[in-house]
Design a protein around this nucleic acid. Structure first.
Lengths: 179, 179
DNA sequence: CTGAACATGTAAAAGGTTACATGATTTT
DNA sequence: AAAATCATGTAACCTTTTACATGTTCAG
């Protein structure tokens, strides 16, 4: 059994939370700002998980002929093992910020535009995070089992965006002040 | 001429700032927390840039037989074009946070360990950001041309880490309080 | 002179996205 | 019955990392 990718483990996590169809996972993933999953990954990885015996199709079909997946005991163990393993350190890839660094010595106009683009990105990120109630991804039972964590994770997204937005304001002021 | 990857453009940016060898770019990239470049990318991409006529080997060799690269007028234009183009929105891939979400409803012990891992990651990220003087990547002339931006970008890294660390403390308290 | 760090490079594979394909099922 | 959306899937490609390979130069 090949080792699973982080995306496969994430999918396994969704299924382990409660039985779901591919489409429902797709929607849960779309609401999770911290790990995107494309269709081209989702469905093949469901197969990988099923072939490895970590999930199994629920007997009954869901509405619209959806295949509903359930976690197996093996799958539950595999998930826990993953949760216990070290995660890679944060690797940021922030193209906008890199551009800003290069633009600053070339043209204040480009720099301003980059900061404004950044603000737009973070504003829509913030809106997305705020619009998602944790209850939409986790059932009520799961919510209470998880304590305050889902709300705290949302708070993290909010604080992160707000920090970034405040920083952008300061940069704009500095770009204007430098004139 | 194929379109360049973000990494190729970033390398072009370093060369455009001032003539540098591959090794010097390697070191500058290692100091930039917002866009990592591996050896397996750096040297092939320098070739790509050279073949496209965007950079050219400086006549003289640097110390230790280094090839020193210079930007060409075409390269300078290509860089500016890239700076003006829209950047992709921020896409976060935060494996630690995803794990925490799944761990919260399984085992408080795992959740605690994840938060502690997160704190360690951000603490070392913060240390790295704080240790880098912008002057080490940009020459004095470039620094003043860029105004306050390099310092502000460093501030961004610092604030980002501090926000994350403070959040971790709150989560730890909540995990303990929930008991 | 010998080991450590310098400097550049290559091949293979991992991981993921994009774009397309296809049929089923509601809605109008 | 047509249009829209639901639901799943596939193939090709893109970007990047990992691991290895190789010669060079400086320090003890």
């Amino acid at each position: 059994m090949e080792t699973l990718t982080p995306t496969a483990h994430t999918i396994l996590g969704y299924v382990a939370s409660h039985a779901r169809s591919g489409y429902e996972i797709r929607q849960a993933a779309a609401r999770n700002p911290f790990w995107g999953i494309s269709d081209g990954q989702l469905y093949p990885q469901l197969r990988v998980l099923a072939d490895a015996g970590l999930i199994a199709a629920d007997g009954e079909e869901g509405p619209r002929g959806r295949t509903v997946w359930q976690v197996t005991p093996t799958g539950r163990r595999a998930l826990e093992e993953w949760l216990r393993q070290d995660s890679p350190p944060i690797a940021i890839r922030d193209e906008n910020l890199v551009k800003l660094l290069f633009a600053a010595r070339l043209d204040p106009g480009i720099a301003r535009a980059l900061v404004q683009e950044r603000m737009a990105h973070f504003a829509s990120f913030l809106a997305q995070v705020e619009s998602v109630a944790p209850a939409s991804t986790w059932s009520e039972d799961e919510r209470s089992a998880a304590g305050a964590v889902p709300e705290l994770v949302r708070d993290y997204g909010v604080e992160y965006s707000q920090t970034a937005l405040a920083w952008c304001e300061r940069v704009l002021a500095a770009l204007d002040g430098g004139r």
